[in-house]
Design a protein around this nucleic acid. Structure first.
Lengths: 212, 212
DNA sequence: GTTAGCATGTAAGGAGTTACATGATTTT
DNA sequence: AAAATCATGTAACTCCTTACATGCTAAC
């Protein structure tokens, strides 16, 4: 069960999956990867690493590998159990995989999963956003008149952004289906590409989209 | 000093500014306004209201105003001190006004401020985003090769979203400067721009930047 | 020689969530 | 008559940030 807060754990496992690393570097990579405003603090990274150590998901090795006598850095490496856990977390489909804080990190490590999972997560995410869109638009029809200019503009802009992301997801889904593994290379993905903004994803997905 | 966590307070003051309301309704309006994924819980709203009561920013009135004998709802109203506090918070320019979690709510209540403040906040927000963009792009030049396809696509999409938001802000700034108070009416603003200040929702959005 | 960046941690506390508890009213 | 939604709260807990504490190393 991957509940809230396992975000850091998954991210760490994913990064270490690509090779051993020490805390400081881990943090930098993490901030670049899913930061966009959020900055992970040491006060949250180091305790998380300690916890993972205790759970045997990673091991620490003091590395004195440097030129003169650099301060010994503690290099972390995934254990087999850690890799198993990583795979387990990545294979999970369901709200935990496509909810706001969780989707990004899964997506970033998509290379380590197979297409089936990728599709389910992408479709789940898309359904989630479409639901939201529907709910907000329904709400707007009832409230519309009373909102002020700026609040309305904010709403409009928000809706547009979500619609945009839906299109992005649709393009990615198509690319996956088309066997085109590279998502960015296709110019089609960047430009128009179809997406049904409103239409709920057909039964295809196993995503009933449980809510709040 | 409006530090973190005054978000709810400002939002509540802003909503009550438009008229008295009870908790349940407050929560719904709030979620619609800046929800986009986040759902404010009662466990955070009611204690916040209690705190504001103690601080004399609002008063509560038990309203038995309903048809038969509906459960008495507690209607909140801003006090003079509350209005003063609202104005103080809205007049603050600086990071607190344009940082991620704070910008949206200020923007929604922009009608209650004057153009000078609005411009400063919009410009501050834009600078912030541009800084991030610059930092990320600089970072990407150094790291580029090693990232995998999906992580790279996430980055690309994130950068694009932020660039979109910058354009949106620029349009709004121009509209303010042009004396055109209505931001949405202008077809120029509606068509090309649009990013999402609010809709951080999409996993992609963020910007890693802001490391210490 | 001093600033900036590398590197690792801990303690206290804030902001908000989940889960619990309760009950009235409206809609189906 | 059941289900949904209105309506108000509290207690425990979680995740994360801030601020503190320490010291090395590279560059200017």
């Amino acid at each position: 069960m991957a509940r809230r807060g396992d975000t850091i754990e998954l991210a760490v496992l994913g990064l270490l999956h690509e090779g051993p690393m020490h805390g400081y570097e881990l943090r930098k990579r993490l901030n670049l990867m899913l930061g966009w405003g959020r900055v992970l603090s040491y006060g949250s990274l180091y305790p998380a690493l300690k916890k993972m150590l205790r759970a045997n998901l990673i091991t620490e090795v003091v590395a004195t590998t440097t030129p003169t006598t650099r301060r010994p850095r503690i290099v972390y490496e995934v254990t087999e159990a850690g890799n198993a856990e990583f795979n387990r977390l990545m294979s999970e489909v369901g709200p935990t995989a496509w909810e706001d804080g969780n989707f990004d990190i899964r997506f970033a490590f998509f290379s380590s999963t197979d297409m089936e999972i990728r599709l389910r997560v992408l479709e789940g995410r898309r359904s989630r956003l479409q639901e939201r869109l529907a709910r907000v638009q329904a709400e707007l029809e009832r409230t519309q008149a009373e909102v002020n200019r700026y609040a309305a503009e904010l709403q409009r802009h928000g809706v547009e952004s979500v619609e945009r992301e839906v299109r992005w997801l649709s393009d990615l889904i198509q690319a996956e289906r088309g066997g085109d593994v590279a998502p960015e290379a296709t110019p089609s993905a960047a430009t128009p590409s179809a997406a049904s903004p409103t239409a709920r994803t057909p039964g295809t997905t196993g995503a009933p989209a449980a809510n709040d």
